[in-house]
Write a protein that binds this DNA or RNA. Structure first.
Lengths: 189, 189
DNA sequence: AAAGCAAACTAACATATGTTAGTTTGTTAT
DNA sequence: ATAACAAACTAACATATGTTAGTTTGCTTT
């Protein structure tokens, strides 16, 4: 684990601001002020505002892709795989709440990397949907429209960044378990 | 039902653009171009960019508040009330998909009306949570952390604006019913 | 001591952006 | 015909914004 570079600090600071007001509403001067330096000095570490967004979003998207790869290639049941996906989201979100805000809300401001991002996202959703479809086929999962199931699960998982910061008392495992119960077993007693 | 004024058209156009890129990234010139006029002409109908956002968000927030009021004062079971909340979200979102994007993503750019908006939202969540708590007390609902239940349901309902536009084949009722099944009964067979 | 380097600075730029002022145009009501 | 009005226009402005150029500062290594 390398030491945190100045560039890393910059990106972290930017991500916090992006979470609060969105990429477009945050100026280079805002980021600089938050770091206690002048806007021009930022360019010693990054080449453009765009690059900051790229770094935040792409690294997260790749983390999700790699995580899902491991899950889908395991020999667990389909419901267990869904539980593991829930854990994946909880873990990544816990470690980078601010970045997740950009991933969810500012991906459309990617430029050069937009196409690549969309490819990663489409593949992720395709793989996710596949697990659900197989679960329906093997009668693990109810016969409800699989796309609605995925949409519902993903909506909750993608919103975790809003909610996890308020739950510092609960452990990662605790949150993942409770979510699995709700999302898979439902709330009806 | 009054005829649609030019101001209404303006707000509708703006909402569509706000959904695509977010409030901050959309310029008055963007909105004007989309309407086939010049930016300065917009000011014949509104007094500022801010006002557009206010109108979009506050009217929706009030619609939710009124809708929930009716539901909470009915004599249905708590699970039925939750189903009705799902229907409320599906209905409002179907009628104003673009506006829902601003409500979800650009509320922090409200200025004068921010405080009022937050008051409406807090009350909404308090009332929602109350229904869940009573459902747990009356043993209709599993003993899982009620806040996680609300968070999970609200995340899905708040994301509907992203997904409903792709489902023009399904009826409102159909979507609401399937969502009720998933969110309340779970997906486990 | 000298050289190298990371990281800050000042000053300036071209462009983008929200908004105002005053004017023109075309339709509707008197 | 005339007055009134909604809704568009042109021109301009002050300010905000991303970025570049060139310079200074203070470690660290030789």
């Amino acid at each position: 684990m390398k030491l945190e570079t100045r560039k890393d600090e910059l990106i972290k600071t930017a991500a916090i601001l992006f979470k609060e007001k969105g990429y477009s509403a945050v100026t280079m001067r805002d980021i600089a002020t938050a770091m206690g330096i002048k806007a021009a000095s930022l360019y010693n570490h990054i080449s453009s505002k765009q690059e900051i967004l790229n770094e935040i979003i792409i690294s997260l998207a790749e983390e999700f892709t790699k995580g899902l790869e491991l899950i889908v290639n395991s020999d667990k049941s389909n419901l267990d795989k869904l539980s593991q996906i829930i854990t994946l989201h909880v873990t990544i979100t816990t470690n980078n709440t601010s970045g997740m805000a950009s991933l969810n809300n500012d991906w459309m401001h990617l430029e050069d990397q937009l196409e690549y991002y969309l490819e990663l996202r489409n593949n992720y959703e395709k793989t996710f949907l596949n697990i659900i479809n197989q679960g329906v086929k093997s009668s693990e999962i109810k016969k409800v429209n699989p796309e609605i199931i995925m949409f519902s699960m993903l909506s909750t998982l993608r919103s975790l960044y809003l909610w996890i910061p308020n739950k510092e008392d609960s452990s990662e495992n605790d949150i993942a378990n409770q979510l699995s119960t709700i999302l898979i077993q439902g709330i009806n007693k």
